[in-house]
Structure formats: structure tokens, C-alpha cells
Design a protein around this nucleic acid. Structure first.
Length: 343
DNA sequence: TAGCCGTGGCT
DNA sequence: TAGCCAAGGCT
């Protein structure tokens, strides 16, 4: 049967009968083995959008088991509630998930939905894709999951499955590679049942057709799969080299208040952290603790010094312990404060 | 296009 | 263990 798929490597879409048989094999498998995530048992665009934003570059277990999704929906149950929240509270609810622009964009989307769409999330793909923080994947995911629109949604899982299914040996992290994957995905997505189809394909990549391991003998698509060595696919450029850097911050605690600095740049914007200082200015101060963490392509060693008589610089403010608990703070700094003052 | 943006789980 | 990876998007 793999030969039949081979014929359509160049010619898309798949011959109709093959496409339908693959579809029904996948759907049957998904109905039997697919996991019942909370966002799979709702049609609410808001609940689905929240899950999609949280799941960008983030594993399901993190979103689910650490309670982010449930707590978010309790605190911000719909677009209206989210739109009227302060950004600081929105970021605090996102704390620990990383990529904080996702939270700021989700907040902006809620405001746009209330202001520009009369509180109703648009079902039109191009309107969805025009919202901040929503690209081709997330637009396709929300359109198909919430509205069952017959559109593809190629995430890392589906990209891997398709690259193997079609033995695609070119790089997938280029515009050409992406274009090919989306073309295959468009040809395969059924006119009715796109919601289940996209879920099933994703689930396959998540459970059987994983990056580092495969279970082809369990795979419902094995008869169609052209890949001889699935673990060698997909092909991507390797990650940039990790650079070690030092970070020098102060823990200034006076009159039961802590000095914090607000991030204003592109990185972790809107989050509060321990104030950064030049290394030379710290001589003579007591080194309280050292915290190592990674961020993007850096391996950071954070050196925390105990400051005396510190004065607030630009973007710096004093906060009580109670206030600190409600401020959004990147995980490494929260960890340090927890060690020092149990916040 | 390639670099950037966080964090934690997995092997 | 240390690198790899994850329901990506923006610039």
C-alpha cells in the first residue's frame, strides 16, 4: 500500500480512495486511543484559544498537570473577563510558562474581541490569523477545533508525522519545507471532520511517532508510510550553541520591602525581577546565593548580592512581601526569593 | 532568513 | 548528564 502513497509524493492530493482509507484508519485509532483533554471536550473558541496559546512550544503535561489551564479558566472564564483584567495579573497567571508575549497577546486578543468583534470570536480564518500572537498554525487549530473548519494545522507533531509519511528529506524549517508540509496537510484534511483529523494526526505524533522513538507496529498509518528510518526525520537545522553568561543582581531588603526592577525590553517584558547591577559595583557585598538557569541560547549564572542602602533606579520600585507574591516574576528570580524570604 | 523569546520534561 | 525537544510567532 505504501507504493500507492508513493505515487502521490509529487502529485497531490492523495488519490481519493487512499486518502479516505488513511483518514478512516486514523480516526478509528483516535476514537479508541485518543486522550480526552479538556480542550477536546469543548467547542468554546475562548477555551480552545487559551489551550493553543499555552501549548505553543510547551508540553501538554506542563499546561495540564501544573494547573495552568484550569486556574486560568477559573480566573478568566471568557474574553470579557480577560479583557478587563490588568496586564500584570494576566502575566502573573502565566508565570512559569515562559514566552510571556503569549500572555500579553492573549490579553490583547480578548480586548480586540470585545472591541472589534462585539465579544464574539471570529470564525473566519483570515480574521483569526490577523489577531496578535496567532500565526498560521494557531489560526488553523482554532478554526478546526472550535468551528470544525476544513483547514489544516501543521504543528511540530504533524510536521514530523507528514515528513515521515512522505519520506520528506528536505529541511522543514525553511519556507519551502513549510510550504510542502502545508500542501500535504491541505490535501489530507477531510471536508467534514477536520477537528478529529487534526487532533488524530497530532496525537499520533505525540504518542507513537515521537521525535526520539517510534512504535510503528502500533501505528494506524504504517501501511501508507514511506519512511524507512523514521528517526532520521524530519530534518532541521541544529540549535545554536549555548553561551555561558554571568548575571549580577542585588537583593535589597529594607523596612520589610524588596527592591525590584521591571523588564522593559523585548525579553520578559512586564515582568519584575531582582535589580541588575554592574559587577564592579558589587565589591565588598555579601554573595547571598547563586542561581543557574537557561534562557533561549544562554546558560545564565545569576549571582545574588545582599545590598545595603540601595536606592531605586529607573524602572525600579520597592514592594512589600505581600505585593511581591502578586507580581509577575520570571521563574529564576521567584526561585531565589523563595530561597531567601519564602515568597 | 535567522535569531530571539522561557521553561521543564525526557532520554 | 547534557543536550534535545515541545499544540509557534515575531522581527
Amino acid at each position: 500500500m505504501a507504493q500507492q502513497l508513493k505515487a502521490l509524493k509529487c502529485e497531490d492530493p492523495l488519490p481519493l480512495n487512499q486518502s479516505e482509507r488513511l483518514n478512516s484508519a486514523l480516526i478509528s485509532w483516535f476514537e479508541e486511543f485518543g486522550k480526552n483533554y479538556p480542550w477536546r471536550s469543548t467547542n468554546d473558541p475562548y477555551e480552545i484559544l487559551v489551550s493553543e496559546m499555552m501549548l505553543q512550544q510547551t508540553q501538554v503535561s506542563t499546561v495540564l498537570e501544573r494547573g495552568y489551564y484550569r486556574k486560568w479558566l477559573e480566573r478568566f472564564p471568557d474574553f470579557k473577563a480577560l479583557s478587563s483584567a490588568a496586564e500584570e495579573e494576566v502575566l502573573r497567571a502565566w508565570e512559569g510558562l515562559g514566552y510571556y508575549s503569549r500572555a500579553r497577546n492573549l490579553h490583547k486578543i480578548a480586548i480586540a474581541v470585545m472591541k472589534d468583534f462585539e465579544g464574539v470570536f471570529p470564525s473566519d480564518l483570515s480574521l483569526i490569523e490577523g489577531l496578535p500572537g496567532i500565526g498560521q498554525y494557531t489560526a488553523g487549530a482554532v478554526a478546526s477545533f472550535a468551528f470544525n473548519a476544513a483547514v489544516p494545522a501543521v504543528d511540530a507533531n504533524i510536521a514530523r508525522v507528514l515528513a515521515r509519511l512522505f519520506e520528506f528529506t528536505e529541511r522543514i524549517d525553511t519556507s519551502g519545507g513549510q510550504k510542502q508540509l502545508w500542501k500535504w496537510a491541505s490535501g489530507l484534511v477531510p471536508q467534514s471532520g477536520a477537528r478529529s483529523w487534526n487532533s488524530a494526526l497530532m496525537e499520533l505524533g505525540q504518542t507513537l511517532c515521537k521525535a526520539k522513538s517510534v512504535q510503528c507496529q502500533e501505528c494506524p498509518a504504517v501501511s501508507w508510510c514511506l519512511s524507512e528510518n523514521p528517526l532520521e526525520l524530519p530534518v532541521k537545522k541544529s540549535r545554536p550553541e549555548i553561551t555561558e553568561i554571568q548575571e549580577y543582581v542585588v537583593f535589597a531588603f529594607e523596612g520589610k520591602r524588596v527592591l525590584l526592577e521591571k523588564e522593559t525590553g523585548r525579553r520578559r517584558k512586564g515582568m519584575w525581577k531582582l535589580p541588575e547591577r554592574a559587577a564592579e559595583s558589587l565589591s565588598g557585598l555579601n554573595l547571598l546565593t547563586v542561581q543557574k538557569y537557561g534562557i533561549t541560547r544562554y546558560r545564565v549564572t545569576m549571582n545574588v548580592y545582599e545590598a545595603k542602602k540601595e536606592s531605586a533606579l529607573e524602572n525600579e520600585q520597592w514592594f512589600s512581601i505581600e505585593e511581591v507574591e502578586n507580581l509577575p516574576m520570571p521563574s529564576p528570580y521567584r526561585r531565589v526569593l523563595q530561597k531567601i524570604i519564602k515568597v
